[in-house]
Amino acid sequence: MKEKSMKKKKQGAFDIIIVVILTIMALITLFPLYYVLIVSVSDPESIANHVPYLWPHVFDFESYKVVFTEGKFVKSFMNSVFVTVVGTLVNMTLSVFGAYALSKKKLVGRRFFLTLIIFTMLFSGGMIPFYLIVNSLKLNNTLWSMILPCAINTFYLIIMKNYFMSIPESLEDAARIDGANNIQILLQVVLPISMPFIATFMLFYSVERWNEWWNALLFINESDYQPLQIYMREILVNFNNQLSPQAQAVVGQGQRANFQAIQMATIVVSTLPILCVYPFVQKHFVKGMLVGSVKE
């Protein structure tokens, strides 16, 4: 009896240690993001004093006003919205069609197509040939350069294929007997029962498109077609080395508000969409990955 209660106590201590460790880690993860938020709503004076603080002394939303009235910010924000919406649509159409077709074991040439696709995960042409090919397709300085070259994520495609394979064939057979063709079956039978799964990948893709910056850096040099991430790079990263034209424009406009507050406000506004979809992504990604990892 005594032994049992002692054991329980020991485990209790262990549980507390775990919670303490995890809480510290969570705080380390959250603090920088929290601080960004705090600085973005602080008045320039408290920021200028360089004192780390946990709560703004004076609330000041001037920096948000500056961000939203800055023409380049609004323009690049709209570009990112376009790329995300259209890009995700393209991503999903190609991925669903491709994954569904490849999930049919009877498809002649299936092995060949799969090998062709999986090989690209192991070997690629690299930066320069990719750059030259996309340029030669006249995609540079268009929003399509952020959509078409990344129209398919091979990893997602394979997971989706594995998922479609896990759907029992008998579900489709009934529709097939009624004379439905493959496209009708996909749209009317398979997709409706796969909605949670499809939605997960839609969110994955949309986060990816929203976060797209590398293709933009390679292919876009006219500020009219810049996405938000490149605008952010200009005012956040390049600012460190020298004042870029974009950064100067902001500084000029933001007479009163401190530039740092503007930087942080830009971060908050651009991260907000991700924060909004994050709970839904988080709810499903483990499930999505698990279903997909079932080997054929």
Partner: peptide, 12 residues
């Protein structure tokens, strides 16, 4: 898509 955006660059 794979031919244009993956295999053409490989040829490149």
């Amino acid at each position: 898509w794979y031919l244009i955006f993956c295999y053409l660059p490989m040829g490149g």
